[in-house]
Nucleic acid binder design. Structure first.
Lengths: 142, 142
DNA sequence: GCTTGGCATGTTATCTTATAACGTATATCG
DNA sequence: CGATATACGTTATAAGATAACATGCCAAGC
């Protein structure tokens, strides 16, 4: 977290209080938080309390690889591997909403081939698996 | 389209007028349509005009593999391969919004491996590539 | 040190997407 | 034919997102 911040500084990014706070909020959870949930916590912490405040900070974090947007949930998580330029893949538990980020770059191979054949230029790829985390899978059995 | 319908009938599904109409609307486009865009067309066609009408029909189509939800766009497309039990992958053009569905991706190997190692049970996987379709890529150059 | 320009923050207002809750109709099965 | 389940329609509201504009801050150049 501190290291991510340091790297951001080095890149000449302006790591302002709101942005830092939002990253802290995200980093404290291993689940995806909605923009309004984040906004609530910003309000409590004395920051602006209108949607654009949260969305702008989130845009910044996502643009700079410090956080990811989970499309399936319209929500956000801190990036688990802020160092490398990875294509992230997520495992989302449908029961407890925890989100695990896989470092690996999954099926780019097959999709790339199809895209190339179709003349399609891929700029970004979303890979999100939904299912049960180990803990909730146990719970289901019980 | 007619064949998809036949198959649905065989499975004992109730292919009602609203549901048929929504599938027709989707099938006429090669791009993703938002629920409210669909709703507008339902209204024009004399169906109910409130959001749940569209959302319920869409839920039915998606649940039964006749349409897909594009998470990245919060929108919907007709399924291009309603016959097989495929894991769909999409290529979304960010300029013209066309959505192409890739049939292949039995290659979930890498992600499956990570999930298994983590004890995570995958139930559903979203794969969506965003970029430029061949036509819009040409347009960009011009 | 002052000014000017760019970026970040904050606010209001509004738009889009989605669902809860309830009543009515229609189909299906005993 | 009556009971039950499913679908449809409506009202109301929740949840997610952005446009547009005003204010404040900081840093570069004079």
């Amino acid at each position: 977290m501190a290291s991510a911040e340091a790297r951001a500084d080095e890149k000449g990014l302006r790591f302002t209080p709101v942005r830092r706070k939002v990253l802290e909020i995200l980093a404290q959870e291993h689940r995806a938080l909605g923009a309004y949930e984040i906004l609530d916590r910003l309000r409590e912490a004395g920051f602006g309390s209108q949607p654009p405040v949260a969305y702008r900070a989130l845009d910044f974090l996502v643009s700079n690889g410090l956080a990811h947007r989970i499309e399936r949930l319209n929500a956000f998580v801190a990036c688990a591997h802020p160092d490398d330029g990875h294509v992230p893949a997520f495992m989302i538990c449908r029961v407890c909403d925890t989100v695990a980020e896989a470092r690996a770059t999954p099926d780019r191979g097959a999709l790339d081939a199809v895209a190339e054949a179709a003349g399609f230029t891929i700029e970004r790829t979303v890979v999100e698996a939904e299912g049960l985390c180990p803990i909730c899978a146990d719970g289901d059995k019980a």
